[in-house]
Nucleic acid binder design. Structure first.
Lengths: 110, 110
DNA sequence: GACACATTTCTATATTTATGGAAATATAGA
DNA sequence: TCTATATTTCCATAAATATAGAAATGTGTC
């Protein structure tokens, strides 16, 4: 993970619409959802959605796959995990108990 | 965790300077660092740093604690973990093996 | 080729955000 | 109270970002 990339990825989800899109796709699993389906579920106009999907896609947080007339978008879990790992890297100055969740402690072990 | 708050928190770290500040504090541990020390380590002018610290602080990702003439800033690990949990909530549509890292699988169990 | 459907690009406008010097404020010690 | 140090606020300017209608592009079916 590289600093500039992390900023790009965070910027891409630091937006109400895009965070909703991303979380929807994270929950949708590997098959993802077609653009029209996302537009409908989140009530986002097509052109606006397209703009946001491009942002997320460009950041590498989602993947696009054409299937017939539809384009299926899905979360890129590897990218997501790399980003989360970058945020928590070497956390807590080595103190094992400064943060209690699994997420944080796991990162300490790297 | 609430959607708007998550966007605010992500926005606060979706910036080159603020991400560097946040990661520095995450790694610094519970005692944190004084503003001047952060300014020096990251070569950020005081006024600019102050602006960024306010953003991070307002988002709840860092805490400030005055100690004599110094103000110590430290990462708020609870907030950080809540944010990461929000991102990965109910991930992968229940497929246990769609993502392999601890971070993601852990969230599935909630 | 004509048509319907899915998605993207173009465009203009509105809004938000970042920067850092200078001045102001706060704290502490002599 | 005078002085040094630490940090913040003020300010103007510059730059980046979000929005959605209309037109364009791509894809499949008859």
């Amino acid at each position: 993970m590289n600093h500039t990339l992390a900023v790009t990825q965070l910027s891409s989800i630091a937006n109400e619409a895009r965070l909703a899109i991303f979380r929807l796709l994270v929950q949708a699993g590997v098959n993802g959802l077609a653009a029209g389906s996302i537009s409908e579920k989140l009530s986002i106009p097509n052109s606006t959605l397209s703009f946001h999907l491009k942002e997320l896609s460009h950041a590498g947080l989602i993947n696009a796959q054409q299937q017939s007339r539809y384009i299926y978008y899905s979360a890129n879990y590897e990218t997501m995990n790399s980003l989360l790992a970058y945020l928590t890297e070497n956390c807590c100055a080595g103190e094992q108990d400064c943060c209690t969740t699994t997420i944080c402690n796991t990162q300490n072990e790297e």
